Computed example of a mutant assay.
Amino acid sequence: MAQCAALAKRFAGEVELVPITTKGDTDRSSLSQLGGTGVFVSALRDALLDGTVDVAVHSLKDLPTGEAEGIELAAVAKREDSRDALVARDGLRFAELPEGARVGTGSPRRAAQLRVARPDLEIVDIRGNVPTRIARALGDAETGEGADLDAVVLALAGLNRLGLERHATDLLDLIDFPTAPGQGALAVEIRAGDAAARKAVAKADHASTRAAADAERRVLAGLEAGCAAPLAAHAEVADGMLFLTATAYATDGSKRLSASHAYTLDGTSAAELAEAAADVAERAVAELMEAGAAELIADAR
């Protein structure tokens, strides 16, 4: 809510924050069983369409890639640090985790990456909100309940938004641990055609973040993968270029396929950024498909 409040300060006019609980917040089934797609956004979209709210704010990585009837993506807020963070007992860094350490994550992508990097680890599927997950590794001071894991892996942006970044004991680099499409960015949706709402949130839109996230999400769509797929995609605009790297994994960590592409920009207009995002994503998807990424993703379902 703190991050939403900070974002709301950029909106034009008076803002009332309306907390909404989604299925993804309450269902403790694994993300692969839930299916991932839409479980964190459906309730907010329903509230938007029925007029309960005029603007809905989501973690962009939770947003399905398909169009939603009657809804418009009006802004993509500037991305925070998109890396994943390790929260471990005794302040341990990733390389310091002992052989056989139990590491919790609810993400098939993170599970695959952990198995690639450290086949000796025991990966434990977990669910729950961020404080609950942290308590699995550090224990719960309020209840006195002890930890049952050695570490958990969470998005650093989520820790930052909740003021819990102090618990991170290591930050995982983007080379070995590229993140989920859209991770670290916020999506701002409105009812389609609502000009007043579009104008109110316009200043929250960050062009280069939108372009990077668009490229990442196009990979997700092109491979017909949901947000529960063992797929990573990270793009950024830097030095006059848009760079994209996408990686698909076998869930057991036995195989990974990567593709990296870049587009040289002549300027920073919305049209050119959109063209760049489409170009690099199309090339990455083609390369991954030719290498067999579709089979890896299908095997994970």
Rank of each mutant, 00 (worst) to 15 (best):
P98V: 02
E96H: 10
K78S: 13
A141H: 08
F177D: 03
D125A: 12
R136G: 14
F177W: 13
A215E: 00
E96C: 03
A111D: 06
G182L: 02
R136L: 14
R133H: 10
D194T: 06
L138H: 01
A112E: 08
L172E: 06
N129L: 11
T143K: 13
N160I: 15
A95G: 04
R83D: 08
D140E: 12
G182Y: 01
D173T: 02
A180D: 15
V87L: 04
A202I: 07
L114C: 11
D205M: 13
P131A: 14
R191F: 01
L162H: 09
A95E: 12
D148S: 02
F94G: 00
V188E: 06
A135S: 15
A77H: 08
A74L: 09
A117Q: 10
T179L: 08
A213V: 08
I134R: 04
E145F: 14
T209N: 05
G146D: 15
I123F: 04
V124S: 01
R109N: 11
G91T: 11
K203P: 12
L73K: 07
Q183D: 15
S208K: 07
V153F: 04
G182E: 00
R191M: 03
D140R: 12
A196S: 14
K203T: 11
A77R: 01
A212T: 00
D173K: 00
A204L: 08
R89L: 09
V116K: 06
T105M: 06
A112C: 05
A212I: 01
R109G: 01
N129C: 10
L121K: 12
A117L: 08
A197D: 05
K203E: 13
R79E: 13
G139C: 10
R110T: 15
A207Y: 03
A185Q: 11
S208A: 15
E99G: 08
I175E: 10
A74P: 07
R79D: 04
A192P: 01
R118G: 03
A135T: 10
L172N: 09
I123Q: 00
L164T: 09
L172D: 00
A187I: 06
E72L: 04
L174K: 13
A215T: 08
A75H: 01
R110D: 14
A213K: 11
E142M: 07
N160G: 12
E189V: 04
D81L: 14
N129I: 10
V201P: 01
R198G: 13
G104D: 07
Q183F: 03
S82D: 03
T179M: 04
D84L: 09
A77Q: 00
R198C: 09
L138S: 02
Q113T: 07
L114S: 02
L171G: 14
R109C: 09
I123K: 00
E142Y: 07
P98F: 03
L121T: 05
A111V: 03
G106K: 05
A212H: 00
L162Y: 06
P98Y: 02
G144F: 15
E142N: 12
A74F: 04
E96L: 03
N129K: 15
A135H: 10
D176H: 15
T169V: 08
L162M: 13
A88E: 04
A212W: 01
A187E: 01
A141M: 09
I126K: 10
A111M: 06
H206G: 06
P131K: 07
Q113C: 06
D176P: 01
P181H: 05
R83A: 15
A207D: 00
F94S: 01
A180F: 06
